[in-house]
Structure formats: C-alpha cells, structure tokens
Design a protein around this nucleic acid. Sequence first.
DNA 1: CCTTGACCTTCCAACTGTGGGAAGGATTAA
DNA 2: TTAATCCTTCCCACAGTTGGAAGGTCAAGG
Lengths: 140, 140
Amino acid sequence: MNIGQASNASGVTAKMIRYYEQIGLVRPADRTDSNYRSFGERDINDLRFIKRARSLGFSVKEITSLLSLWRDRARPSREVKGIADGHVADLRSRIAEMQAMADTLSALSDCCAGDDRPDCPILSDLSGDKPAKGPAQSPS
Amino acid sequence: MNIGQASNASGVTAKMIRYYEQIGLVRPADRTDSNYRSFGERDINDLRFIKRARSLGFSVKEITSLLSLWRDRARPSREVKGIADGHVADLRSRIAEMQAMADTLSALSDCCAGDDRPDCPILSDLSGDKPAKGPAQSPS
DNA sequence: CCTTGACCTTCCAACTGTGGGAAGGATTAA
DNA sequence: TTAATCCTTCCCACAGTTGGAAGGTCAAGG
C-alpha cells in the first residue's frame, strides 16, 4: 500500500501521514526500492486510531500517549482515563469561555437595532462605555 | 507615553502592540527623537477597544472592521450587528462541536474502570471497536 | 562624568495542525 | 515512447502569542 492508498484506507491525508511520521507520532513507514512509503494493516490501524482521536479533539501529544497505552497490553486503564478526563476538563473549560463570549455578545446584539442608524450598544461596550444592565439608573 | 506605559494603560502587552502595528491593525505610533514609540490617549483607547474585542473572541480581521466602523460616525449599526452575529454563530458552532466531543468522551470515560486493569472502552472506541451503546445485544 | 539597571528598538524563531505548491523521480496505461 | 498520475522532499502560509538575542536610550545614584 502506498501513501495514497493508505490515505484512502485511513481517512488521513497523505500530507498529514508524512507529517505524523516526521514528528514521530507514527514510526517511519517502510520504503520500496523506489523510495515510496509502504504501509501495512498495522499502520492503517494506527492511522485510523489517530484519525478518531483527532476527531475527539485530542492533541498530538495526547495521542502519542494514547497510542503507546494502546500498544501496551499491561496498561492500567487509569492512565487512559486520566488523559481522557484531562481532555474533557480542557474542553469544558474552553466551552465555558466561549459560551460566556457568545452570551455576552448575543445580549449586546439583541440590544442593537441593526438598521441605518449609528447607535450601537456593541460598539459602546467595546469602547469601554458600560451602561447599566438593569433598569435605567444614573450612577450615584 | 512610551510602549511600556501604553501597555500598562491598555492591558495589551508591548509585544502585541508592536505586532498590531506591524499587521496594520493600528496605525504606526509616533516616534520620539530616539525612535521610541509615543502613544496618545486615542491610541490607548484603540488598544483598549482591541483588548476588549479580543476577549470576546473576535479575530484580528473582524476587529479591523469593527475599528473602522467605530471611527465612522455615519456607520449603520446593521454592519456592526452583522459582524457580531456572524461571530456568535461561529462560536456557537464551535461550541457544539466541542460539546459533542466532550459528551462522547465523558460517556466513554464513565464506562472506564480507571484501575490497574487494561480493559478500556476509551481505547476500544478509538481503535474502531464499536460496542453497542444500548443493552447488550449481538449484532444481527 | 560614568556606571548600572530598566527600558526601548529590530529581527528571528517557536508553538498547533493543516493545506498549498514547486521541482523532480516513478509508475502505469495507451 | 509518451502522457497522466502518482510519489518524493522542501519551503511557505495561516493566527496569535510568546520567547529571546543584540544593541541603543534613559534616569538615578555614586
């Protein structure tokens, strides 16, 4: 199997397969006489594993650990779970951040007429003008 | 005001101020005789605006537009709202993606004993082994 | 006046993960 | 034999931020 076929079989682009090899995520593929990479079933399985892990948002560094745990028949599942939980925590924290952004922004947007007039609470907020959120009330 | 003072006043690091100038997000600062950048109140306000917009997740490209709308007294608020709504949509779609990842992963993690034994549904999933989610039932 | 430390300047590199493209060799089918 | 399609390596770009090196400047204190 050359790199194009491996790509089709795994869903990982040829470009990325070379990259993963380069950074040491996968071991260097065998080479044919003409220097083409040659992949076996094992390699394809690794690539599929990586593909799935990437689609769950794991970083390359995390996948390195996951791959070696996967190959280790004596692994403690605790370690796998630890990596997964760490990643979930990271995801959730980033989600919370983005959720806060989205909520703030859509509240501002809801207050914006969105017409031809220049008045805009979004720009007011960005410029540091912070009108009271509650009922109108002049600052004491 | 030199760059350090501008940084303190705006909350944007000196490094980033130079970067924003370099990519044309802010106009080049005035220079003193000794080639130090010199910032005025207007510059500080711009930097604060940028800082706040970045904290809401706007890209530099979007901020470029927001800044020019901000400076345009005849802007239609529609355009501001359009940018904001587009960004909110983008945030929400990325949030949904990450939420799906987190949900999938935490479901897998919940099924993982996390002890010394090697059996691990997380690795099973990553390796393409897809056990039925529902009650045990052999594939027909 | 001179030294020292804290500032400023520019330039270069790294990070993550992916894609694009060029220049050149290999393979394959017609 | 030739043309199309693959493969190879190498460099560049993205976005935004951080780090550092090498060198000029400024202010305070001796």
